[in-house]
Every structure is written in structure tokens, then in C-alpha cells.
Write a protein that binds this DNA or RNA. Structure first.
Lengths: 334, 334
DNA sequence: CTGAAAGCGCTTACAG
DNA sequence: CTGAAAGCGCTTACAG
């Protein structure tokens, strides 16, 4: 049932080497025997053992990819881009679920070494000593997506240009006449850049800064909604004359909208709301949420390209991928 | 940098066999040399090559898992269950994205044979001749999740009990006084069972059957919304006195709600709406969608258990996993 | 308790 | 154009 190359060689009355050559179109072999060998392979439904092949070839052609959380809709888009592109290069993807757990990341790095992956695309939720040390044991190319490694770490990255994106969104609100804009800040890396943009924006136009920090990362809708609502309440309480909410993510924005809805406040009539991420839901008529498109799919494709560059020994630059305001109906002009 | 077992043997002044024994706690080796060997392994950061190991052990301890679409939120939950459980058994997961493409499924089966996976959990979107034939080339356990193989195919499955679930939901509507219930049918397997339940339900209570079929599977929100809206319009047109909509999925239900919203119709005041699936969004106050919980995570866990039974050579029965009505605010009592 | 040797299923110089 | 042989990095009887 499970034939080996020997069985094929025997059945085709040739040597193992000849079968191997037919399989890999390496070395020359007469068209006739080639045809014959291929035919018996087909007939016997023989499939070569990839692992045996890997072990003599020293390259697995599999790339390890880490996902922060297997149910995270944010990652899914970029994963699709990575997967599509990598497969064009003839590489397979081994996906490791991190489950927001540092231990799991460490295990994944070990697995990557055991399995001799040819490269890694990673998404650690932080850059602790242990993580940095684990990464340093690797002797294969590593690219970080949507997370920027600390300066001393030589890992390359691709990330959204959160600062520029946030600034574009704030300028958009400014153009629509908003001057009392509050920021619902995300407690993660991207959140920092957006926060910094907000601060610079306030300084530039001499506006009062009104910041509230949500307490968890925003990939689970129900948690994010609870959080967004809570943040909105704090803002309404401390700065009741706020006219616009610049939310760190769409889910947080929807949470804020829930808070507004419960108080009977109209969006955008009584409060303008914007998010970041352009999740599918944002376009539903109840929300009509103006937000930032992050082009996650394209980022994934680009990530695959970058990693392949590294695998081929080429030098690369870190990339900050652009964002774009998606205008809908959640912002009014003052 | 990339040490082999030979390097360790040399460094520890023992034989390769001894190192191997220390690695696998197989055979006996004196506590002292064991300690010493383990220490040099640690010091040299040696990680055994899994593939070399696999090739002599004839078991990879990796399970192949197919996903219909890498961005599908429906699969994500059960995948998490599968992954969590399999990892408790000490198995790794290799995820193959089908992208709703039959060709990709065939490629995955080939890959499964090349990589000598120990078992497969699959989610084909259909059971064509080619798919059945490809599956028959496999000599490892295969379990189908959320798809039921045709009778002649010996593949086992686990699926939600769609028929019973749909019936429970319809009885729920009946208890709330609804007699003119329309069904927005899904054009897939699960949809058939729900449709059958609907037909039986109508026959049982002598109700007029009012069915409209949505044209695509419902995992992408925007498509499903467009579809659900369209379906609702047809129903409103053909059976204007309908009081409740039994929708094949939550996304379709939300689409129907968009249709109602655009006409200024109130839910549940002027129309009751129920879905299936209990997606996160369903609990938002705008929807308050009454729906069916499918316990996808638990189904994934159970799937892993079943596959492990098969891998161990035990016999199993197909399982139909239970569902439960989740009551919210989208149904009124007549 | 330890190690030499054969074997797993392939690939790849190399000789003919 | 073809094949014998060594090698990839492990494991596993087996002998001592």
C-alpha cells in the first residue's frame, strides 16, 4: 500500500537512482525510460516521502507562521495573503497558534528548529528577554509582521504605518470641523503609534488631549465592546463636550457606539465616531463606520515576498505599509 | 550552528546510540551519563531533526486539517477545539487552506500522503468523484467535520445535528404564536437538513411552506448580507403576511434585518427573525438575534478525540452534536 | 550499561 | 544514458 522508491524501481526494472532522477528531472535519462517510470509511478499511485527527501536535500520548503489567536479575524486577512504568495513560490505553510501565550511562542520556535523550517513569519505579542533569546537561537530568516522588534534585535518587520494612518484620520476629522476629539487608546504596539500621532496632532493644532485607555487588545468582539462602552462613558463623564471619538479599533468604536446607543445619542448627529481596521461589520447600515483600511491581504503578500528575499540571501528594508481613510457615514461636518 | 546527534556524541564522549537513548528515554543508560549527555545537549542548544526521527519511526505525529476558507469565522472556533485537544495528545496540526477550491483539496490529499500525516480531519465542500477517489488512496484515518460523506464512503464524520436544531428553533417560534414562518434556505449540506426540518414542521402543523433559497454559502458577511436582503425582499413580495423569518445562518439573518431596516420595519415588532450559528455579532443590541448555538469549540474537541480513537485502531460511531436555542430579543410573542 | 551496525526512504556525486 | 554506493540524521534490535 505504501510503496517506496525501491518498489517502483523493482516494478519498472530500473535502479533507484533512475527513479529518483525521473522524479526530480535532474540528471539525464532517456525519454523512453522516463515515460515508463512515470507511468508505473502513476499506476502504483506512488507518492515520495517528503521527509526522506528533505533530509537529503537540507531544505524543507516549509515556512512557519505564527498567529496570535486562531480565531482572530484581524490576522486572517494577512494570513491569506501570506499563504497565497508563498504557495506561488512553492513553499508550504505551517501555522502555529500562539493563543496569546508566551510559552506557546517559545514552543513554536523550538518546533521550527526541530522541523527545520526554511523561514519564519512571526507575530509575538511582546519582546521579552526569553523571546528575544529564543529568536537568537534561530539560524533561518525571520520576519515579524504587524509587530516591530526592538532596535537591538536584527529581525526585520513589516507593519502598517499606524502613525501616518492615525494622523490622516485625525486630519480628516479636523477638516470636518472637529476640535474636541477624544482618543480611545489601544493597549498594544499599534496603539502606541496612534497615541503618539494623536498627541502630535493635538500639539500641532493646540487642542486639548482627551485620552482613555482600553484595557485589552481588541480581537474579541464582546470584550472589545464592553471596553469601548466603558471608555466612552469615561469620556462622556470627563469631557462632555467632545464631538468626535477617534477609536483605536473598529471593535472599540462599535463598543463606543453601543454606549451611545444605550444613552439614545445619535451617530453622527450628536457624536462622530471613527475606527481603525475596516472590519466587515463596519459597513453595515447601523454602523456606517468611517475607518482606516489597513490592506492586510496586501501586507501578507508583501511579507511573503520579503521573506523569500531573505531566504534567497537578499538584503531587505523594513516596510511600513500605507493605510487609507474609508469614508462612510459616522462623521458629521460641524 | 546546526548540530547533529554525532556532534553531541563526540562532545559528550559517548556513542550516537547513547545520545539517542537519552533523548528518547528508551533502553537504559546510567543516570550519570544521562545527566552529562543532557547537559551537553542543553549547552550546545541541540535540537533533534524531527524529520530524521520520523523517517525511522514511521509516525509523524502530525495531523492534517483542512479549512474551507482561512478567513471563515465559522471554522475558527472548531479549529481551536481541534488544535487544543490534539496538542494534549502530543500531535501537531498542519492546516491546509481549501479556498473553496476542489483542486486545492486534491493537492492537500497529495500533500498528506507525501508528508505521511498520521490522520486527517477534512472539510470538503462537496463529494465529487475525484474527491472520493483521492480519499480512497489514503491509508490513514480520516474524519470529516461539519460535512457528511455519502453513504458509500467509509469516512466517519462529526456534524451538528442540523435537523434537530432547526426543529427546536421552529418549535420555539411556534410556541411564541408564529404560524406564518418563512425559511431562508442555505445552498449547502447543512441547509438541506434545516430545510427538511422546516418541511416536516410545516407538515406536522399544517402550515404553508414559504421557502426562498439564498445563492451562496454564508461565510463572507457582505455577500451574505446582500443575499439575505434579497431573500427577504422576495418573501415580503410573495408572502406579505409573514410574521417570522427562519434564516439558515446568522449572517443571512442580519442581511434580512438590513432589508427590514431599509423599509423601516421593526424587529421584532413587525417581523421576528432568527438565525443559526450564534456569531459574536448576534449579541449586539442592534440585532439581539435569537439563534442556535452550535458549540463549535466542543465539536472540535470531540473531533480530535474521535480521530485519536481511529489512530489507535478503535472503532467509532459518527456523531451528531447537539444544538441549543439562544434566546435574545428578535422574536415577539403573538 | 554501552556501542557498532543496519536500516528508514530518499538524493547525489561518480564511475562506467 | 544507467546504476552502485555513500550519505542525510536519526532509531533500534543486538552483541558484548
Amino acid at each position: 500500500m505504501r510503496y517506496t522508491i525501491k518498489d517502483i524501481a523493482a516494478a519498472a526494472h530500473v535502479s533507484v537512482s533512475t527513479v529518483s532522477k525521473c522524479l526530480n528531472s535532474y540528471g539525464d535519462v532517456s525519454p523512453e525510460t522516463k515515460r515508463m517510470v512515470l507511468e508505473t509511478i502513476e499506476r502504483m499511485q506512488y507518492v515520495p516521502n517528503t521527509f526522506a527527501r528533505y533530509i537529503s536535500q537540507h531544505a524543507t520548503h516549509v515556512i512557519g507562521l505564527t498567529v496570535p489567536d486562531i480565531t482572530d479575524p484581524y490576522s486572517a486577512q494577512s494570513n491569506r495573503g501570506i499563504e497565497t504568495r508563498l504557495r506561488e513560490y512553492g513553499y508550504d505553510l505551517f501555522i502555529g497558534n500562539l493563543n496569546r501565550d508566551e510559552e506557546r511562542f517559545l514552543q513554536f520556535i523550538k518546533k521550527a528548529r526541530e522541523m527545520r523550517f526554511d523561514g519564519l513569519i512571526i507575530t509575538p505579542d511582546g519582546w521579552s528577554e526569553r523571546i528575544l533569546k529564543a529568536i537568537s537561537t534561530l539560524d533561518i530568516p525571520v520576519l515579524s509582521i504587524r509587530r516591530r522588534p526592538p532596535a537591538l534585535c536584527k529581525v526585520h518587520f513589516i507593519d502598517g504605518d499606524h502613525y501616518a494612518g492615525a494622523m490622516a484620520m485625525l486630519e480628516y476629522l479636523y477638516r470636518h470641523g472637529h476640535r474636541r476629539i477624544a482618543h480611545l487608546r489601544l493597549p498594544n504596539e499599534a496603539g502606541c503609534y496612534r497615541f503618539q500621532a494623536y498627541l502630535d496632532f493635538c500639539a500641532k493644532y493646540q487642542l486639548e488631549s482627551r485620552v482613555v485607555c482600553s484595557s485589552i487588545p481588541a480581537s474579541i468582539l464582546s470584550d472589545a465592546v464592553k471596553n469601548g462602552k466603558e471608555c466612552y462613558r469615561q469620556i462622556a463623564c470627563r469631557w462632555p463636550d467632545t464631538t468626535a471619538l477617534f477609536c483605536g479599533s473598529d471593535f472599540i468604536a462599535i463598543g463606543a457606539m453601543v454606549g451611545l446607543w444605550e444613552e439614545g445619542k445619535l451617530v453622527p448627529g450628536e457624536m462622530s465616531v471613527v475606527g481603525v481596521g475596516n472590519v466587515e461589520m463596519a459597513s453595515l447600515p447601523w454602523f456606517g463606520l468611517t475607518t482606516m483600511e489597513l490592506f492586510r491581504y496586501e501586507m501578507g503578500v508583501k511579507a511573503a515576498d520579503l521573506l523569500m528575499d531573505l531566504v534567497s540571501g537578499r538584503e531587505i528594508e523594513d516596510v511600513l505599509s500605507p493605510m487609507m481613510v474609508v469614508e462612510r457615514t459616522s462623521v458629521c461636518t460641524l
